[in-house]
């Protein structure tokens, strides 16, 4: 499974009243602020612009979180990932700065 993608189940209501349980990617479930989905293809290749670590999509917080050294948290605004180092939140300022060139 691509890094950063979580699988969920969802009930698909079919014609005639039957229900089928299907597995979907988290990216397919979310349409932040009703605008656009976070593309699955994009999530597969995203990396942290600071430390180049992997990125996980935190659906609840609506953040893209570095799972590498710096652990920066990047915002999603209007459904668009904002992958700018200056706009990211630091989990622990001292720890993150040590790991970024």
């Amino acid at each position: 499974m691509p890094r950063g993608l979580r699988l969920h189940t969802k009930d698909l209501h079919k014609e005639g009243g039957s229900t089928e349980r299907i597995v979907v990617h988290s990216s397919d479930l979310t349409e932040p602020q009703g605008k656009i989905k976070i593309s699955k293809t994009l999530l597969e290749i995203l990396a942290c612009p600071a430390c180049k670590g992997g990125i996980e999509y935190n659906e609840t917080a609506q953040k893209l979180v570095c799972v590498g050294k710096c652990q920066r948290r990047y915002p999603i605004r209007e459904g668009i990932p904002v992958m700018l180092i200056d706009e990211a939140e630091l989990p622990d300022e001292n720890a993150a700065n040590e790991n970024v060139p």
Partner: peptide
């Protein structure tokens, strides 16, 4: 969206610090 282009995704990013994995 107006042009119904499906195979496209967007991100805000700086050209000098790209948010993509090596060799991707």
């Amino acid at each position: 969206q107006q042009q119904a282009i499906k195979n496209i995704a967007f991100s805000v990013a700086a050209a000098e610090a790209l948010p993509f994995a090596d060799a991707s």
